[in-house]
Nucleic acid binder design. Structure first.
Lengths: 315, 315
DNA sequence: TTGTAGGCGTTATCAG
DNA sequence: CTGATAACGCCTACAA
């Protein structure tokens, strides 16, 4: 291109204030540089860290992640999947809120690059980045046993929306069967709700009064665990002397902040690094977009257990 | 349309598995139903709640909010603004990380509907939904005085990226001038960093040893306040007997969870309802899109102060 | 080196 | 009521 033409062009661009339209470009090129990211519930710290990890990867790769929030509504999730695909996204990163997900399976079968974040779905092997479920839970339970707690109780919110919750539930049952040699593990499950007053408190009072030895409780996630601590402090129970408390921590923001250490007496947890799940799943999706023929991949992060005072009966 | 034609059409749609393309539709109709939402730092609980509020409004209005994360990088923010506009968004909701923002001003002048979330920018009246700054801070300081604390110190992270931080800084200075009758208010500002070890602890140790009477500290936001509590607990200072602690709480998830009450001894705060800021700013943007001629609007939420043990020296 | 024609998938318009 | 055609703005390819 001659210098003269270049200048003329440049002038015209200036004059007419020309801005290329990505919409038209997408239509023509069939490439949007857009990635659809479906988040089950964006209002939790788990999602914040997840999203943060995801953005960091796509930003430096020149892709624009579009985040949408299903608010735990499987219906909405289906609609968003269709919407994003019809908007020409080149791939989908899905932190799903529906364990059964035929639409997503269909899309992936048709060749759309899909990676799941954290939560698996039923009957189909997607690419996925998640965290190990069984090992950390059984470690927690071994630890409780070694500290002399009696059989722990598992407090969980409704299982249906989160496959991870179900897996944790199952892992808990297996673990107390093996480690505590319990015959009727289902007896140690407590379905609760955070938004509804009194349910948790009722269960906790029963456990505190009827347990032989020192009881312990395990929250299915950070929200539930904090809720348990809240209720126990209102009841006036002393942790860990009256009752032990522990659970997974899916609220980590890297090392920046440590809620489980701040809330006295310090809560025993294992950390799910959601920012890392975000980063790795985003990278995996990029790999798949670049090389659509690649093998299915499942990555399992290995959480480490952090023992704090809330489960220390002995020394 | 005849029933027969309808059936035929329906069959063809089935047969060819026809899916309309929103990209092409946007190109033709010049309407995308897309809203660009620019978030300064998506990894904070403030942003989670903000996003959650924003999604709820757009979802029920049939718009799709596209969230992008600037990670406190003003450069990235500029790029995203251009990107989203060229992608045909019908409006922009901006939680900006640059106090000076000529690009955004230009867009808005050209008729693009823009609403700011939480953070104002310099020298231009945008539509904005935010929270009152001066009144709650001066109330906190009056409260500290009435409890017998000596002049409080203000701990803040770097001011440049957040206009709200600057405003709080200024409000603090004005307030201690008026309420404590301080001649040199700047002396009571401490610039700190959470990611860098030791700075905060050094300042706190100085304050604890050199203050006449009982000192108090005010964090510029939740992160800083929690950091202060962390460091104080490591130093071994007793709150509020050795030192009072308070600050704004921009981490509220409605009533669901109450960190400030959980962290003993209970922290005095005022709550910034970021989900409400999200909802109201989204609604405002929809109003503007529907009626582009409307007057500029600025909404200021009024936070309420919640007094807890961390600032109660007297009874 | 520069200019022009065709088509991406819609929708709007107009003729049959 | 139905079917054909042009245009949205860009990109590619080919012709001048």
């Amino acid at each position: 291109m001659s210098a003269e033409t270049r200048k003329r062009l440049h002038d015209i661009i200036k004059m007419t204030n020309y801005k290329p339209s990505d919409v038209a470009r997408s239509l023509k090129s069939q490439r949007s540089r857009l990635i659809g990211v479906i988040i089950s519930d964006i209002s939790t710290p788990f999602s914040s860290a997840l999203i943060s990890g995801i953005s960091s990867v796509f930003d430096s790769a020149g892709y624009v992640p579009l985040f949408v929030n299903c608010n735990n509504n499987a219906q909405k999730e289906r609609a968003f999947i269709r919407d994003l695909v019809s908007r020409g996204v080149e791939g989908l990163l899905v932190n799903t809120c529906s364990y059964e997900n035929p639409d997503l399976i269909e899309m992936e079968c048709k060749g759309l690059p899909v990676v799941l974040c954290d939560r698996p779905v039923k009957d189909y092997n997607f690419n996925i980045v998640t965290s190990e479920v069984v090992h950390p839970i059984s470690s927690l339970i071994s630890h409780l046993k070694s500290q002399g707690f009696s059989v722990p109780y598992f407090f969980t919110q409704q299982l249906s929306s989160s496959s991870v919750r179900m897996l944790r539930h199952d892992a808990f049952i297996d673990s107390i069967e093996k480690i505590y040699d319990v015959a009727d593990p289902i007896e140690y499950i407590r379905n609760t709700r955070i938004d509804k007053q009194g349910i948790t408190k009722k269960y906790l009072n029963e456990i505190l009064t009827q347990t032989q030895g020192t009881p312990a409780v395990l929250g299915s996630n950070t929200m539930t665990t904090i809720h348990l601590i809240n209720e126990l402090s209102q009841i006036g129970a002393k942790i860990p002397y009256d009752i032990g408390v522990c659970g997974p921590d899916d609220w980590s923001w890297g090392q920046q902040l440590d809620w489980a250490g701040l809330i006295l007496p310090g809560i025993t947890t294992y950390v799910i690094e959601s920012d890392e799940i975000g980063r790795q799943s985003a990278k995996l999706l990029l790999d798949i977009i670049r090389n659509p023929q690649s093998e299915k991949t499942a990555v399992y992060l290995k959480p480490e257990i952090i023992i704090r005072s809330s489960t220390l009966l002995k020394g």
